[in-house]
Amino acid sequence: MTRTRIRASAPDQACVDAVDLARAAAQELASPSEVGDHLGYEGEGDRIVTHYFTCLDRAYRGWRWAVTLTRASRAKNVTVSEGVLLPGTGALLAPEWVPWSERLQPGDLGVGDLLPTADDDDRLVPGYAGGEEELDQQMIFEYGLGRARVLSSVGRDQAARRWHSGEQGPHSPIAHAAPAQCSTCGFYWPLAGGLRQRFGVCANEYAPDDGKVVAADHGCGAHSEAAVMPPSVEQATPILDDLGYDLMEDEAGSVDESASEELGHS
């Protein structure tokens, strides 16, 4: 078996010598003041050479102008093929692009937005599998007759950790000040399935978490068994009359002499 040897051709000398043409092309892309020293050249192929120049724009430090020159076969004139601004060593670059599915955060979904779910999402399993829920009527309904996919054990555990550590969990300020836990509240509606022992829905229209999933050890001041405090009675401020005198009688029925003298002088 013979191997074909490929020999790299030397850069075209006419394209290598056309530094002034490449510089003029770079100055057309920006301005003469933004094109610096010639950094060298690189052969790209037959009669194709790219020249590099320093970029003096302060907003693009570490970048360089790249102008590619070429020459047609048997032609003497060198022409400009393209010119671009490329990053060099130490150039400031944008962060690596992240797919939207990885950038999406809870609460970003708005009205009319669609959030497709991947077929291999580990939070879901086929409906006939039933996840790790009990083989009850819910699974029988979902066996080919209801949802195509249901929550997997991974998705269930992620949701449980997220809910338990959130504002509707036991560590929120309102839960610390609550008189009792949600699990003992009459408005607590437990969830079905494997999360029944840990979470439920608040059904108290006056509670801050009405209609939301709350942890069994969460709580708030709208607990159904919260003690009713009697209304406080405001005490009236006494009125002092310092413009007159009152006659005070002793046990013998006589008027105090000091009071009589003061009345006589008044």
Rank of each mutant, 00 (worst) to 15 (best):
G244V: 14
G194M: 07
S266C: 11
S183Y: 01
F141R: 10
L104W: 06
G83C: 14
T89R: 14
A25H: 01
G107T: 12
A10Y: 08
G45Q: 05
V111E: 09
V228R: 09
F199G: 01
P173A: 12
C15M: 00
V84K: 09
Y60K: 06
P230F: 05
E82N: 15
G169T: 08
T237F: 03
E34H: 04
E262L: 14
Y52K: 10
Q181L: 12
A192S: 09
G211L: 07
A94Y: 10
V98G: 01
A66I: 04
M248L: 12
I239R: 11
A59P: 00
G186L: 07
A14T: 09
R58A: 11
E262G: 02
G221E: 07
A26K: 01
H176E: 08
A118C: 08
L93K: 13
P230H: 04
S260N: 06
E82Q: 15
L114D: 09
F187I: 02
P106R: 11
D108W: 13
L151T: 02
Q181Y: 04
H265M: 15
A216R: 05
G194S: 12
L39P: 06
W65F: 15
A252W: 15
S172E: 02
V84C: 07
R196G: 02
P238A: 10
G186T: 11
G90L: 06
S224I: 10
R147S: 06
G127N: 04
R196P: 00
L195K: 01
G244F: 09
T68S: 07
T68W: 00
R61I: 11
W97Q: 06
S266L: 14
A227H: 05
R47L: 07
D108M: 15
A159M: 08
G166T: 01
S73R: 11
A222C: 05
A25Q: 02
P87Q: 09
C185N: 03
L124V: 06
D250F: 14
E234Y: 05
T79C: 03
D121F: 13
T184I: 02
S9W: 06
K76A: 13
E82C: 10
P99I: 13
P208N: 03
P179M: 08
L240K: 13
G43W: 01
V213G: 02
A215F: 00
W163K: 07
C55A: 10
T54P: 00
C182R: 03
P116M: 09
V19D: 03
S152N: 01
S266E: 11
D121C: 15
S31M: 01
E134I: 10
A26F: 02
T184M: 04
I140G: 01
Y41A: 03
V16M: 14
P87Y: 10
Q197P: 02
A192V: 06
A192E: 05
R196T: 07
R198K: 12
A26M: 07
Q235C: 07
L114P: 00
Y52V: 06
L85Y: 03
C220L: 08
E142P: 00
F141S: 09
R147C: 03
D119F: 12
E225Q: 13
L135V: 08
R103T: 14
A18F: 05
P230T: 13
A207V: 06
V228N: 04
R161Q: 07
Q168M: 03
D209A: 14
I48R: 04
R147T: 05
